[in-house]
């Protein structure tokens, strides 16, 4: 390897570390302030002080976002953070309105991916489960769940997959009441299958690990909280297909949070 190759290699590595975005002049979205002014904060949050105002007609570039805050750059190279509501007071350079998906509620209805963590109870054992879901339509989705239940006598591990139907994805049961009229929930029903592994506790003697298949029905509800946040409540009834004479029934209750994209 020649010295030049090594030098080139180092340069490539350096570029990768720095991030190509810094070397190639990146084109950011440009907008113009239409309101009297917009306030720029030092950081992405209401706790950060306002240190500058961009005046009407001023051109700003939108660099990046964090939660519902956007980092902007003025022509004078001053940078600051503005909340989403303030960006609504800007227009594109050609006078068109910029696309601001108001509230993520529309995204909630058109969500594709859903990820969440829940905790609860499986046959008296404390349960933790994580899941990933994919939505084919707003009514139909499929999910994969991994769970761990820790009881006094055993540790249970489960991996399941299921199909979910949400007949009313934006049910507003209190639309006739003030304050809670926007409260949205979506009941769901589903069926699925999976595997269950039972590992007896180390303190028990002569107990053996068991692996079984299972079938289950599920029902519950998703509650839309804010932005990309859902609260999820779920009940599952399992039939564990054992190789003994009788199959076993098991119940599971859980509650948790999900985010969607």
């Amino acid at each position: 390897m020649t010295l030049k190759t090594i030098r080139n290699l180092w340069f490539t590595l350096f570029c990768l570390l720095i991030g190509s975005s810094q070397l190639v002049a990146e084109e950011f979205a440009r907008v113009k302030v239409m309101d009297a002014f917009i306030e720029m904060h030092t950081g992405p949050g209401r706790g950060f002080p306002i240190f500058f105002v961009a005046e009407q007609g001023e051109e700003i570039e939108i660099l990046k976002s964090k939660t519902s805050w956007y980092k902007v750059r003025l022509k004078s190279h001053k940078m600051g953070w503005v909340p989403r509501e303030q960006l609504a007071k800007t227009l594109q350079l050609d006078g068109q309105k910029i696309v601001i998906k108001d509230a993520d509620f529309n995204e909630y209805l058109n969500k594709k991916w859903e990820f969440g963590a829940l905790t609860g109870e499986f046959e008296g054992a404390s349960l933790i489960s994580i899941y990933a879901g994919y939505h084919f339509t707003e009514n139909l989705s499929t999910e994969v769940t991994i769970s761990q239940a820790l009881g006094n006598f055993s540790e249970i591990r489960m991996a399941t997959t299921n199909i979910v139907n949400e007949p009313f994805p934006d049910l507003k049961p209190f639309s006739w009441l003030p304050y809670v009229d926007k409260f949205t929930l979506s009941p769901f029903f589903g069926i699925g299958t999976g595997v269950i592994q039972t590992l007896p506790r180390a303190t028990l003697v002569n107990a053996q690990d068991r692996n079984d298949n299972l079938l289950f029905v599920t029902t519950g509800a998703k509650f839309y909280l804010t932005r990309r946040f859902l609260l999820r409540m779920e009940y599952r009834h399992f039939v564990v297909l054992t190789d003994r004479n009788q199959n076993e029934d098991a119940d599971e209750w859980k509650l948790g949070f999900s985010i969607f994209f």
């Binding site: 979205a29 660099l63 990046k64 976002s65 910029i98 998906k101």
Partner: peptide, 9 residues
């Protein structure tokens, strides 16, 4: 079209 959903988050 400026779409702020496409801004690097």
């Amino acid at each position: 079209q400026v779409d702020i959903a496409k801004v690097d988050a």
